[in-house]
Design a binder for these strands. Structure first.
Length: 898
RNA sequence: GGAGGAUUAGCUCAGCUGGUUCAGAGCACCUGCCUUACAAGCAGGGGGUCACUGGUUCGAACCCAGUAUCCUCCA
């Protein structure tokens, strides 16, 4: 082992990760132990690790490692998601660079490129997770588009279709013009955007006055609407006004002309229109706005769709054909202005939907899509959370969850993409589509679903099959990625292919799921639905929702802001253990975390602290003839360890990982290093007795085990040092027994706190008087309490550099004095004490105590308090009173003696 | 517009059943130390009207109501 004063993580991390892999410690097979299972939220196959993953996976690894050490059969299933839109967008971009356009190649050719891309870049993120120390069972790595998982997707589609839960229909969907596909409501991100509100004049039909810039305008010859989307006026089907709006009563039943194209449209009445918004006149564009679409249905208006799939204008627009919607917006504003139809333009802030995957502005668009009915699926999934079968942590998410589940809308599951599971629907001539797994099955279904075809002779059937074979076509669309992710906990254990298999029976339902609250509905809710629907069981018991990682200014980390540190860079700089500690240190469950590299630095420093504590213990020479002078210190630390472990376990139970870590950190740094080791360490170059060494080594090993889930690498490294004796090849920290809570001697712990206070006071005496720590002092103790200082004197002498400590019965004059608890301490000094300063200090303390006593007295003399408060509270107040009174007396004596 | 959450030290946050000398931790800051495990360290210290206003209670950072500010989700 190196004796460097600095811990060097790089070599250690590489070495132990391969060792763990080599010895297959991460691998799990069903056995008689209790399983503990986590399925990873599968990251995008082409993605790279970001800070959110770091947090997420650190938490999962801590949980899985702890469970493993606690004797459970821990299984963490990793994998990746095919992420249709994101991946397809990347492949399209890659092809574009090669000069290939998606529309020039076939579906098969495209998929070939996509798979190549996936093979090349897929799984980078999993390699990165290894650097973090993630102890996933890599043998179980799954991918949502591998054959079995795709099969599960297709089969569950067919299952739901047969139940009548899947239907095809024309609906207004969120159209992503960059991805050229529909996306679900959940994939639309609303952002506030600075826009322009254009006020546009429409000429009233039949009015004689031509509308120009110079002509006086009245509401008889024109009306003005306000819109943020002037490029859609060509798609207008009507103008709508509120029937109660006095300003426009004379226009009821009239018509207006759409500017520039002069198409005549009616003025309709509906109290949907808010009179005080804009001008009180609303242009109705059913093809390009959800609300307008509903309004159009109600008033039987035609739907005029002027946009191509890529967001450019089509020939129905009549003008600006082929222009992109945003360019068209600018151009049309100019054209309207030139034609005298643009009254004014105002700045306006509004919410605009963006595609989660491509960041393009979402276009509401009517299209023919496949939908899954959600109402029936949602009910049991809501119930499961409300009755506590599935726990959301923190609980505050239950409300949000309920709100969403009670207002759930049907799920648009088709996507106009090629990368993904193709919808198993088949079209033959003008018949209703058939849903079937294969072409052959589809053809059989075509025959079987029509009674008269069923009656056909075998010969006729054969002829039909031949014809159908040639003309039947499969739906071009693929399914929403979430339609495969929602099956993840089931399909990774082959629960669809073989529902009674050993793995599935053993690992499912899984235990904990760790994920971001952003995908509570996208994914978590739907997994619960799928679990209940397809297996009748919940997919997991606990859902730990992490916060969002933000930068220290509170901004979300994003590529465009460039405020996200490179996780691998952080690991290189601070070590994986350091980064893990840094991430957890500041991340209470469910609260966002303001990430600051300083936390990683703190983590690295902690690793270094452990390293150096180790160097100390390792350096001790043992002299077996020596007696053990440290029984008290050893007994104390044993109790303290148990006390801390109780607290740590309590925090773990409540998924307060951050607090569990802080408690561990303090136990190691403060109690073990700063107190225990200082108490027991022999003087420079002196040997240590065997008992002290044995106890210290044992403590150290317990500490390594306790730390392992948080800091796997450094603990494994130290665990194998010869200090702990021989280890066989499978004897590793990763599978060592996690410490269990032992006895804690309360009285001992209490006394130790007093002793720590005493040592601090002595150090303070030095500090305020600038006495070097090297200069030994004498200590006189006047004991007024029950504390048996004899047991502690050795420790006090050592820690505070006291040459002689004595119990005295009287105050010592001319010495620096202070109190700890009820007891008085005196340190004779060579220099004269500053009587005035001493007086001031004592007076101040006296005043505080008198005030305190007064408030306690007030309570105790309050009859209602004595009547209502719990007896133990009252007793407590009496104790406080007695304590304060005795201290006051002591201080008064001291003052008198000065 | 609807729902949920937050507001405690300069920063990030604990404070769990209202009651201990309860106002805490880490970081940052100040002072002094390169004291033979560790300067990535050690010792000591300063720093708070618990957002505001009321209420409930013997007792409120904690419960209730209102106000302000901020965040998130949904429309």
């Amino acid at each position: 082992m190196s004796i460097s004063t600095k811990y060097n993580p790089q070599e250690t991390e590489e070495k132990w990760y391969s060792y763990w892999l080599d010895k297959r410690f991460f691998h799990s097979e069903p056995d008689e132990r209790e399983p503990y299972t986590i399925v990873i939220p599968p990251p995008n196959v082409t993605g790279v690790l970001h800070m959110g993953h770091m947090l997420n996976n650190t938490i999962q690894d801590v949980l899985i490692r702890k469970a493993r050490m606690q004797g459970k059969n821990a299984c963490w299933v990793p994998g990746t998601d095919h992420a249709s839109i994101a991946t397809e967008a990347k492949v399209v971009a890659m092809l574009k660079e090669k000069g290939i356009s998606k529309k020039d190649i076939t579906r098969e050719e495209f998929l070939k490129y996509a798979w190549e891309w996936k093979e090349k870049y897929g799984g980078i993120i999993l390699e990165q997770l290894k650097k973090l120390g993630a102890s996933c069972d890599w043998d179980r790595t799954r991918f949502t588009m591998e054959e079995d998982l795709s099969d599960a997707v297709i089969n569950s589609f067919i299952h739901l279709y047969k139940k009548g839960n899947i239907y095809r229909g024309i609906r207004m969907v969120n159209w992503d013009p960059a991805g050229k596909t529909a996306v679900s409501d959940e994939e639309v991100i609303r952002k506030e955007v600075n826009q322009k509100l254009y006020y546009i004049r429409y000429t009233v039909a039949g009015s004689e006055l031509p509308v120009t810039g110079n002509t006086p305008l009245t509401t008889d010859n024109s009306l003005t609407i306000a819109t943020t989307r002037p490029e859609t006026i060509m798609a207008d089907s009507a103008i709508c006004i509120n029937p109660n709006d006095e300003r426009y009563k004379h226009l009821h039943g009239k018509k207006v002309f759409v500017p520039l194209i002069n198409r005549e449209i009616p003025i309709i009445l509906d109290d949907y229109v808010e009179m005080d918004f804009g001008t009180g006149c609303l242009k109705v564009t059913p093809a390009h706005d959800l609300n307008d679409y509903e309004l159009g249905l109600k008033h039987h208006l035609p739907v005029i769709d002027i946009l191509n799939d890529d967001g450019s204008l089509n020939d129905k627009a009549e003008i600006l054909i082929g222009e992109d919607r945003f360019i068209a917006r600018k151009k049309i504003a100019k054209m309207l202005e030139e034609a005298g139809h643009l009254e004014k333009v105002e700045d306006y802030k509004s919410q605009v939907g963006f595609s989660e995957r491509t960041d393009a502005v979402i276009e509401p668009k009517l299209s023919l899509q496949w939908f899954s009915k959600m109402e029936e699926l949602a009910k049991p999934a809501l119930e499961e959370v409300l009755n506590g079968e599935v726990k959301l942590i923190p609980e505050k998410f239950i409300n949000t969850y309920r709100h969403w589940m009670e207002n759930v809308k049907d799920w648009c599951i088709s996507r106009q993409l090629w990368w993904g599971q193709r919808i198993p629907a088949w079209y033959f001539q003008h018949e209703e589509p058939v849903v079937a797994k294969t072409k052959a099955e589809a053809i059989e279904e075509l025959i079987n679903r029509v009674p008269e075809r069923r009656e056909w002779s075998e010969e006729s059937k054969a002829g039909f099959r031949k014809q159908a074979e040639e003309f039947i076509t499969q739906d071009e669309d693929v399914m929403d990625t979430w339609f495969s992710s929602w099956l993840w906990p089931i399909s990774v254990f082959d629960g669809f292919k073989n529902p009674d298999n050993k793995d599935f029976n053993y690992y499912y339902p899984t235990n904990d799921l760790v994920t971001a609250p952003e995908i509570l509905f996208f994914w978590v809710a739907r997994m619960i639905m799928a679990g209940k629907e397809f297996t009748g069981k919940k997919p997991f018991t606990n859902v730990y929702l992490t916060g969002i990682v933000r930068d220290k200014l509170g901004r979300k980390m994003s590529k465009s802001l460039g405020n996200s540190p490179d996780p691998i860079g952080l690991i290189e700089q601070y070590g994986a253990d350091g980064v893990r500690v840094g991430m957890l240190m500041s991340s209470p469950a469910g609260n966002d975390l303001m990430f600051d590299e300083a936390y990683c630095e703190q983590g690295r420093n902690f690793a270094n602290k452990i390293w150096n504590a180790f160097r100390l213990v390792k350096g001790w020479e043992v002299e077996t003839s020596l007696p053990n002078p440290n029984e008290q210190a050893i007994a104390w630390f044993e109790s303290r360890f148990s006390e801390a472990l109780t607290e740590i376990e309590h925090n773990f139970k409540q998924y307060r990982l951050s607090e569990a870590l802080v408690a561990t950190y303090k136990l190691v740094w403060d109690d073990f290093c700063a107190w225990y080791l200082e108490m027991v360490k022999p003087a420079y170059q002196q040997p240590v007795d065997a008992a002290t060494r044995a106890a210290s080594v044992k403590f150290f090993e317990q500490i390594l085990r306790l730390l392992h889930p948080f800091m796997p690498f450094i603990t494994e490294e130290l665990y194998h040092d010869e200090l702990f004796g021989e280890r066989s090849e499978m004897e590793c920290c990763i599978v060592a027994d996690y410490p269990t809570v032992g006895e804690a001697n309360e009285a001992l712990l209490k006394e130790a706190e007093l002793v720590k206070g005493l040592v601090s006071e002595i150090r303070n005496v030095r500090n305020t008087r600038q006495i070097s720590p090297k200069e030994a002092l004498e200590l006189n103790i006047k004991v007024n309490s029950e504390v048996s200082y004899d047991q502690w004197l050795n420790i006090v002498c050592k820690l505070a550099n006291i040459s002689k400590a004595e119990v005295v019965s009287d105050k010592v004059a001319g010495a620096a004095g202070f109190m700890v608890g009820k007891d008085e301490f005196f340190i004779p000094l060579s220099q004269n004490i500053d009587v005035e300063a001493e007086k001031e200090r004592l007076t101040k303390e006296l005043e505080y105590l008198l005030g305190f006593l007064k408030s306690v007295d007030a309570k105790l003399s309050n009859e209602r308090f004595v009547q209502n408060a719990k007896p133990e509270i009252i007793q407590n107040e009496r104790n406080k009173k007695a304590d304060a009174e005795s201290k006051i007396a002591t201080i008064q004596e001291s003052l008198a003696a000065l």
